[in-house]
């Protein structure tokens, strides 16, 4: 399984053994964050670090635990209740001129969101790259939930995430929409085909996927 090195800045004591052993200069960066583009995953830095500040984390993740329908339904009910709590707290915070109440309601708004996030994870939405998450994104792109929905963000996610459990069926339109960053032309290509701008011939990084 491919792995990359990650430095825990709270543990790092800058003994710099990782700089000495890295064959690619990946650990020597101006912001102390290991350059994931340079890391080859060899793990020598993690072995050499005297503070135990580097761990090797996976790049690919296994499928999530399968969730029973009854569990999903029960978790969803809790999430709906926490969502209402969050909204009430937010509305009170926005409408009060009492500083104490505003602070308390902002705390409860935040708390309700955190609880809801934790519970929805256990309803089959733990990993962004799971079939569940990607099918939901795809569904929202195809059936927009309303005005202002950032469909471009969802489409970008669908093209950058790699499904880890084979559960993503994919968009059924069979076409992908691109915008050329050089000449601004917008065009479509069949899924699976390499996009090339019909106006100026730009490819690769000069194109942005928009749908």
């Amino acid at each position: 399984m491919k792995r990359i090195a990650v430095r825990n800045l709270r543990l790092c004591t800058k003994d710099c053994l990782c700089l000495y052993v890295c064959p690619n200069g990946a650990t020597d960066t101006e912001n102390s964050i290991i350059d994931t583009g340079k890391c080859i995953g060899c793990g020598v830095c993690a072995d050499a670090c005297p503070s135990g500040a580097i761990s090797m984390v996976p790049v690919e993740y296994p499928p999530q635990q399968k969730k029973e329908d009854e569990v999903v339904a029960a978790m969803n009910r809790v999430v709906e209740s926490k969502a209402r709590e969050e909204k009430i707290a937010r509305t009170i915070a926005e409408n009060t001129d009492k500083p104490g109440l505003r602070k308390l309601m902002k705390a409860i708004e935040r708390s309700a969101r955190l609880s809801a996030e934790d519970v929805i994870r256990e309803a089959g939405f733990m990993l962004p790259q799971s079939g569940n998450s990607m099918n939901l994104l795809s569904n929202l792109v195809e059936n927009s939930p309303g005005k202002g929905f950032p469909s471009d963000a969802a489409s970008k996610l669908l093209s950058s995430l790699k499904c880890n459990d084979g559960g993503f069926i994919g968009a059924s339109t069979g076409k992908r929409k691109y915008r050329c960053l050089l000449c601004q032309a917008v065009f479509e290509v069949e899924e699976g085909e390499e996009p090339v701008c019909p106006m100026c011939g730009a490819k690769g990084k000069d194109l942005e996927i928009i749908g």
Binding site: V57, R113, E117, P128
Partner: peptide
């Protein structure tokens, strides 16, 4: 409201995997 929590959770899931770009897109949703 529930979908908001679902997607902000996926933003956090992306952050934990050092996928900053994806985290930003999930947060937008």
């Amino acid at each position: 409201g529930a979908l908001a929590a679902l997607f902000s959770n996926l933003a956090r899931g992306s952050e934990k995997q050092y996928m900053e770009k994806e985290a930003g897109l999930f947060r937008k949703i």
